[in-house]
Write a protein that binds this DNA or RNA. Structure first.
Lengths: 206, 206
DNA sequence: TAGATTGTTAATCGATTAACAATC
DNA sequence: TAGATTGTTAATCGATTAACAATC
């Protein structure tokens, strides 16, 4: 398969959400340059990305909204449900749990973990919260392949180690530190602090 | 001034946090290749970035931790306090407020806004929460230059419009939609949903 | 058809990396 | 000095964009 860049995947994710919005307005078709405006990109880029998912438009009517969404889904989504575990049920952890609760996606959070006895063995945003020591058992039993790290910076590495040993194939790290993992584990950093510093820097330059 | 890419700013932000950790361990100096390992990058990249902030290391001892941190700070941080406003005091909004509360950074959240009467006129994580209708007045009175959007997707555009009209020069958008703003306003999207889809996609490919 | 779009290639652009003289 | 590092240039790499023949 052709090598796909993280940026391409990110854009496809955005396209899909924009298309979803269009579909709910009963929009049937869209041209590459129209979609480009909605995502603040270029038409040629949109066409390349659409090509990458293997969908073909019509030279007269452009892209069919519903079919393009479906093609992006085929490309991005796992063939079956992909289960995730979230470690750290603070405000950010609960915000993420809230987003995934009830949504019918191929991506779902199967278990939450925390060390706080007040949170353990309760249901938070529709998800059962386990003590951290049960992590390995629950991850393996529920076939969890993706770990979400929402603990404070000083605990992130220990949690990452635990998740890797339990056998996840990817990590989504929200803690503001760089974690070290075995090379076969994919890490995606969501560095909110960097985002603030970038926004502040470029807003200043105008 | 030489054009600086968003990526460079992001890396500098990461370097600074890594250096902070080293300093708290009383580490005095570090070589480019050592720093590269800690941020999962390349030594040449580190050297280029360090050059960009105008700091010079020693060919025998590498970089001085404290001085490099200071140089990055000079480069990244605003000369005086930069005030931000956050709109949307849900779980994510509170997580962000919590992070900034009490921290002594040049970046601070001066005001929060929500439409929920239960939240308005209270202090959340040390920050006063105002009704949305006061936004313009508060933003101008407190010289707020950066807006943080943590409302649901369907309200993000309206909030962005309100913030732009109030005169902010940058937006940090956490809502999972693309917002349209005047060209003089800088938008930084933190697309958490895209991050999940990217992580899931690449974890699968291993 | 005439006109506008598509898929796709070629050209451009920018960022990353390798290499090396200068330095201590 | 000998050796390892730095700043910095040159080479490489990859991603974006422009351009255009093919299509309806």
């Amino acid at each position: 398969m052709k090598r796909i860049s993280p940026k391409t995947v990110g854009r496809l994710s955005v396209y899909r959400r924009v298309l979803q919005g269009l579909q709910s307005e009963n929009r049937q078709t869209i041209y590459s340059h129209e979609l480009a405006v909605l995502v603040a990109g270029k038409a040629a880029q949109v066409r390349r990305d659409v090509m990458a998912v293997g969908y073909m438009g019509s030279t007269t009517r452009g892209y069919n909204v519903r079919e393009l969404m479906r093609s992006i889904g085929h490309f991005l989504d796992a063939p079956e449900q992909q289960a995730m575990a979230i470690v750290g049920v603070g405000l950010l952890g609960r915000a993420i749990l809230q987003y995934f609760s009830g949504s019918r996606l191929t991506l779902s959070i199967a278990a939450a973990f925390d060390i706080d006895p007040a949170k353990v063995n309760r249901v938070v945003q529709g998800c059962r919260c386990y003590p951290l020591k049960d992590l390995r058992r629950v991850v393996q039993r529920s076939k969890i392949s993706l770990g979400i790290i929402t603990v404070p910076a000083d605990q992130a590495q220990a949690v990452a180690d635990k998740l890797c040993r339990a056998g996840v194939s990817g990590l989504l790290n929200f803690a503001p530190v760089r974690i070290q993992v075995p090379s076969e584990v994919h890490v995606e950093n969501v560095d909110i602090i960097s985002a603030f510093e970038q926004a502040a820097f470029f807003a200043r330059e105008e």
